[in-house]
Computed example of a mutant assay.
Amino acid sequence: MVVLTKGELEQIALPAVQRASPPPPAAVPEVDLAAGDAAAAARAVAKACEDHGFFKVTGHGVPPHLLARLEAAAAAFFALPQREKDRAAGCPFGYASKRIGANGDLGWVEYLLLAVTAAGAAAAPGSACEGAEPSCFRAVLDEYVAAVRRMTCTVLQLMAQGLGLDDRDVFSRLVLDRDSDSMLRVNHYPPAAETRRLTGFGEHTDPQIISVLRSNDASGLEITLRDGTWVSVPSDTESFFVNVGDALQVLTNGRFRSVRHRVMVSSARPRVSVIFFGGPPPRERLAPLPGLVDREGGRRRYREFTWREYKNSAYRTKLADNRLCSFETMATS
């Protein structure tokens, strides 16, 4: 797959790479949604969110043929001539390459960022992608979003159950809200010589409630453990990987922790990943849930704020910054 010319790639001023080889592989917790024991699955999900902020989902019910069509359609889009992909550029949604955000972060990546409508379809405001994005790609993206959002809500309900909350929909209703600020991101990491280890997407936490990722068989995803050690996530084309986001960390009063992660590129194979970000409505007021605060003697680790307020603050930060520090209470700092 030819995506960017050699000259264009070499113009990227990439962040320094700290080590020449990938870190050791992670022992990723696994949750089987089809096992038939919801209580056991809820306990496993809660433990994974507490210990790692990250886990793998199997038995998810998303058809393999849909995943195959998605991968083929994404490959076809990124194989388009650069001028055609540039027609899909938009701000902040649409196509972009190399630059991640507006504050100087760079990476060995090109991507398509789409808003998710209330009906569960992928859409770029202002029809930014019309004419550049093949209609078959839009159709498969819409089908994929609908399937993954259903699975995401199942996982969010298990999280609530694992926390012992009476309201099992306390998280999922935010993602299903007609004004939910959810997004879909399709990342393409061009091949790199195996002798080089490049920063594809620098270290960060995800802002939203939950991130659900699926990738092809090229590795590169890395996460940090609680002690700060980096580990690599083995590729798995049949499973989904779930990240706890910053908003969920706030809602759970810090019991679930958003996982710091990155993508490093050192493969002759391109990596394609598709991430569904489940976010709350912009005006939603976020604060630790009262039932979880009560279990800590009334200590609130975060003040109340709206999702819009958080996003406005986050847009002013670098990728690796701790975006939640300005929302912590004095007791946490």
Rank of each mutant, 00 (worst) to 15 (best):
R178K: 13
G120A: 08
Q208W: 10
A132K: 02
L112A: 07
L184V: 15
G107H: 02
A73W: 04
D142N: 13
E296Y: 00
C91F: 10
P25I: 12
L225N: 03
G61S: 08
S232A: 15
V116M: 05
A218F: 04
D32V: 02
L248S: 01
V242I: 14
A192F: 08
V109E: 01
L292M: 09
I210P: 03
L156G: 04
D105E: 12
F327D: 00
F240T: 04
P15D: 01
L176K: 12
I223Q: 03
E84W: 01
V3W: 10
V31W: 12
A102H: 10
Y315A: 15
L80D: 05
A193K: 09
P190I: 08
E143A: 15
R295K: 12
A72W: 07
P280S: 10
A44R: 11
G131F: 04
D177R: 00
P190L: 08
R269M: 08
V175E: 03
R260C: 05
G107Q: 02
G162D: 04
F93N: 07
A287M: 11
R262M: 06
R19M: 09
P134W: 05
V145F: 00
V62K: 04
A89S: 15
P281S: 14
V31R: 06
S232E: 10
R226C: 08
E284M: 08
S172Y: 03
S273G: 12
E238V: 11
A13C: 07
L225Y: 07
E110Q: 15
Q11G: 11
A72C: 05
L156H: 02
I209T: 07
A192Q: 03
S313C: 10
R323S: 06
P280W: 12
A40V: 13
A102I: 05
T332Q: 13
Q249N: 05
E130T: 11
P270Y: 09
E30Q: 12
W108M: 00
E8F: 08
R308M: 10
V170N: 06
R173H: 12
V274M: 05
S211P: 01
P207V: 10
V263D: 09
Q11I: 00
P234Y: 00
A16T: 14
A160I: 09
R323K: 15
G126V: 11
S326F: 11
R150C: 08
L9A: 02
R226K: 14
E10M: 11
Y144C: 05
K85D: 11
C136I: 00
P25G: 07
A96H: 07
R214D: 03
K311V: 15
E203T: 14
R300C: 12
I223M: 04
I210Q: 00
R303Q: 14
V274D: 02
L248D: 01
T224Y: 09
E130G: 05
S172I: 08
A68T: 12
T152C: 11
G220T: 03
C129D: 03
K311C: 13
Q157H: 09
L66I: 06
A89V: 09
C325D: 15
A139H: 09
L80T: 07
A74M: 13
S267T: 04
F93I: 01
G297A: 10
C136N: 12
A119Q: 14
R185F: 02
N253D: 06
L4Y: 01
E110I: 01
R150Q: 13
I209H: 02
